[in-house]
Design a binder for these strands. Sequence first.
DNA 1: AATATATTGTCTAAAAAATAGACAATGTTG
DNA 2: CAACATTGTCTATTTTTTAGACAATATATT
Lengths: 248, 248
Amino acid sequence: MKLFDEKNLIQQLSIDSVIFGYKNKELKVLVPQLNFKNPLFSLPGGFILQDESIDLAAKRILEERTGLTNIFLEQYRVFGETNRTNFDLIDNLNDLGKENFLGLGIEESDITWLKKRFVSIGYYALVDINKVNPKITGFDGDINWHNIKDLPKMIMDHNEMVSYALETLRQNLDHKLIGFNLLPETFTMKEVQELYEAVYDKPLARNNFQKKMLDLDVLERLEKKFTGAANKAPYLYRFKNDKNPKID
Amino acid sequence: MKLFDEKNLIQQLSIDSVIFGYKNKELKVLVPQLNFKNPLFSLPGGFILQDESIDLAAKRILEERTGLTNIFLEQYRVFGETNRTNFDLIDNLNDLGKENFLGLGIEESDITWLKKRFVSIGYYALVDINKVNPKITGFDGDINWHNIKDLPKMIMDHNEMVSYALETLRQNLDHKLIGFNLLPETFTMKEVQELYEAVYDKPLARNNFQKKMLDLDVLERLEKKFTGAANKAPYLYRFKNDKNPKID
DNA sequence: AATATATTGTCTAAAAAATAGACAATGTTG
DNA sequence: CAACATTGTCTATTTTTTAGACAATATATT
């Protein structure tokens, strides 16, 4: 069976997603690793079916890796330099020897497909990291969360794709209120602030941050959270569901 | 000769550009008209050569219509619904009768090419309308500036593409200082304000607008402009060249 | 049981920015 | 040379942002 059937897929056009998660006060990105002689890192990506919108394709690709539906997902930029080819991947496949990659279910026609130049539509997703159980699919040997400040060198321009995604996230975090997609259902104000600090990579003033958040009128105050710490217990908050932008 | 040679072009991927101009206090868009039995309006667009980056392709397509190099041009969104096909165009070609469109230099293979679903990368451009001499190319029967508030119904989702482009322009006008690309070399403060009012479609306070603009420290004050009107002559200003973003 | 400590929630003062109102300057007309 | 329309700028007011302060409180310590 052909992996890449040009009859069913749009050629030379791909989707790559920067999946953001948040844990331990650090912004993270989900990065699969392709297991060849030299491990290759690559953003989770895929191709677009002929009868599938690009948004649905991005959603499908995301579901394959995270098991999640209902995630915040938005295109942010197209990457279309002429040097965007899968030469890294091909080199490694060739290293395997033809008989071996044929064994993996890869055909000559797949190599031809991959050899072409690709234009890639960049999407970024925001997920509650606790809800994700990363799945290994396709060529993946492994898949892991990496701190955004310590990403491995990835294939092609994927590191640059992350930079642009982060820039977009920073621009949208404030006025589109999308950050709560990175948090669990309930959270303390401090946790929200730490998330913002992780995204912007700079400290924020606690008193004014709290005021600004409450003034937005998007948070619902719940019961207190008793952590056992020797101090006043913080309130838990929930993002008002009806304020949640663009999730379907 | 084939018009659309799949060997040299990326298939099912196109570029469409919203070319903004400004005149008579109105924001305008350059729209070609395809001359068939029923005139069809369509954004200026084209395809991407195999050895050409998407930015260069957009630039080339723009140069073909406007004769301008050195224009502000930026991608803003990808449109990829499954119903994005050239059925309008095909219908009209078929109406011509096969022998006639063969006469136009269009081959059967071109029809096959056009029939497929297309993903389109939207670019928007800002030009000095006085410098543009719109050129008729390809299928165009005519090409004209249309007031953005009074655009004709265009093919596919091109009207929606303009809406998104305008939204992007509005978001970027203020903090990226790109508006001056729509004005001639020199201009009065009132002209800048009228441009801003045209883009945002709302009046702005004169005194505070002037202060804000001058505080930006991007304008150079030149000599006065004596119009012959019975009032104080306004100064001319020039946008400081070294502040101009992203033009090459 | 009283005190100490760390953190939270909120208030107020100060600074900065945005908005609104006012007026002098000036190029032309009558 | 007065009348007029528009421009450039200033000041007052309001709103927003930032910084500083302090009371409330959950637990640990004594």
